[in-house]
Design a protein around this nucleic acid. Structure first.
Lengths: 206, 206, 206, 206
DNA sequence: GACTAAGCGAGACGGTACGTCGCGTCTTAAA
DNA sequence: TTTAAGACGCGACGTACCGTCTCGCTTAGTC
């Protein structure tokens, strides 16, 4: 049995120490500059070499550190018989994670690296984007079956409509991510912006 | 008269050389790392000192360089009598700028700095986010007057629904920014995802 | 019986493998840098631990490796009835060993460590310098008895006159160690540099 | 005028600080390990980069540091009408420099690098070996003219006879470099080791 | 038409962190 | 019990850019 797989072996212990130190540093302040491999090494009581043995550079480390406990915190929307509520559950979990430390600031700091380094992008898509879309898919399916959503509703498009605006606020457009944001987004895309009287008779253009 | 204000003085000439070099380096490859102050100095035939005299650091320089010719390229949607077309014009100009060099890659590279440094964020909002919202406002107003949009349509929300998903694709979710994207986004938010027969009788919740 | 003393025990076999690997690496190229403990371990198929069990550090190992087969290769000058020839035999064995691989390059690489670390210096003197002087002593004694050398000839001084210049060439002054070098050195110290007519009547100053 | 050539410019000041720190560290203890570029930087209040800008590695720096004030300290033997005294003057200056700090220990530490790195070897020969031989040449010439030395006396050989044994003691054979050493060496090579009565009638073999 | 001071090129500098290398120690599983 | 395998703490390496700092030279604008 390899050492790395042993639950409480030295390898595992130092790995945890590194990830903890990384999260601490990311949470300490939003400054990307605070996350240095040397600082992680110092804080975790681990040698720099040990860090580089496991992660190619500090961005891979940071992504790992934030993803590992970001993933389980996603609310998995269960069937509550109400599509709107299920969508709000989904979108609120996005708002919640990105408005909490260290995840919001970490995302701000990491996003340039993720979108720039193909390997990081691949990992992020595989481990975050796709799982989240897979969580949303059954909600959409149930919504269509219930008659709450158009039969041709595209999961990918809905996903982008729900997450994109939150990302835009987090990164560029500024206003804080407040509690009501999720509800407004869900209502926005459910109802659309055409006035009801006109919407009734409109043929959907695609 | 100060030299800086003279149209073709030494100061102005070197400023242009610096901005040009910056754009060249950003366009050369998507790698952020290629943009170093020393590289800019070398390529523009200017001393590093001269760069630091004008910009606090390379991120301010980079933001300046890309904003300066990004701004005039925004399509200003004119009144064509059709709200949907006007919205598509707006959103297509976002898709277009972010899918072209060096603006897309530059945005990917800069977004972490913008969202992390308050001063950069302020500048970006003042000079990009708000002007774009100001462009969108008359479109929304005309749409409401024409009866194409609900009377309570929120410009800010529509803006975020149109730009957010594009940003999400550019940075994280991956799929390329294609030509049909703008149309799909506009139709998505106009119609909403409720089926027509139900949407007709629904009371909007806000 | 301890394993270390068993002629073909595991201990003895790995010791030989380590020494062989060390010599190979030293011979491979003159570069000292090629001799790393990790390289020795890899090449000998032995764990680093096993090396450190036997040698304090790589310099002790290296010195051991080169001394072990350097020692028996010393020509032990036998009584051939001619002092000059016996001295040439002695000095030529020094020239020969230091102009061959890996001994010359190894000496160049090791000399700083030997002269710097007291323990290594002690070992080198006990196992190389003194045995060689002990080889030279009977040659000098026979030379004095035969009337070929002054009665007060100092073995230590002759030894240093014969070996020193060779070492100087090997390490610093540069010219290659050629075959005639031994003869020139022996003649140089036998005759001295005073002209014969004067030397005859000179009283030796000491 | 280049800054580097300015006698008290920043460049020159930091260069001196670096060389001083290097000598201090070399003198502090004979340990080679004490001479680290980082230690030199720390002690001299200079950035590591500044050191690497001028010297390829710590060995070039060390060689420079010791050579610079070793060279002027060489006693240049003047014509005192007595060849033996002039030779003793020469050889004593070698004994003296190598028995003083930091030059002796530094030489012990550096000799492996000098003899191993062709570039260092070239510098050492050009700046130390050859100048010293050039100092010895006129002594030999005068000695021949005076009839104190054989007409075919080879400067190179005499030089090696005088310096080699000292080097051998410094590095390997052990006994300290004492004050009488120079005299013994000069007498040794002047008289040779053949007994006077035999030496008179001997034909020199070369 | 010379004088002078601001702005500039050039590039060395102190500094921080990088990612790498090899040392010598320590842990673990298998022989 | 000893070994091979190899992770680890450590310390230094040499590099890359950062942003600051002289230093003369250029170059306008003033006298």
């Amino acid at each position: 049995m390899k050492q790395t797989e042993k639950p409480n072996g030295r390898a595992e212990r130092s790995k945890q120490a590194i990830l903890d130190a990384t999260r601490d540093l990311l949470a300490a302040d939003g400054d990307v500059g605070s996350l240095t491999v040397e600082a992680v090494a110092a804080r975790s009581g681990v040698a720099k070499t040990t860090i580089y043995r496991r992660w190619r550079d500090k961005w891979e480390l940071a992504l790992d550190a934030v993803m590992i406990d970001m993933l389980p915190s996603f609310a998995n929307p269960v069937d509550v018989g109400d599509t709107r509520n299920e969508l709000i559950t989904f979108v609120d979990s996005v708002v919640k994670i990105w408005s909490s430390r260290p995840y919001g600031p970490a995302m701000q700091a990491l996003v340039s690296q993720i979108s720039t380094q193909p390997e990081l992008a691949r990992v992020y898509r595989e481990r975050v984007v796709e799982p989240r879309r897979d969580q949303l898919a059954p909600v959409i399916e149930r919504g269509i079956r219930r008659g709450d959503l158009r039969p041709d509703t595209d999961v990918r498009l809905v996903h982008e409509f729900l997450v994109g605006p939150i990302l835009y606020r987090l990164l560029l457009s500024g206003p804080p991510l407040d509690r009501k944001l999720g509800t407004r987004l869900v209502d926005g895309i459910l109802e659309g912006f055409k006035p009801p009287e006109k919407a009734a008779g409109t043929k959907r253009r695609r």
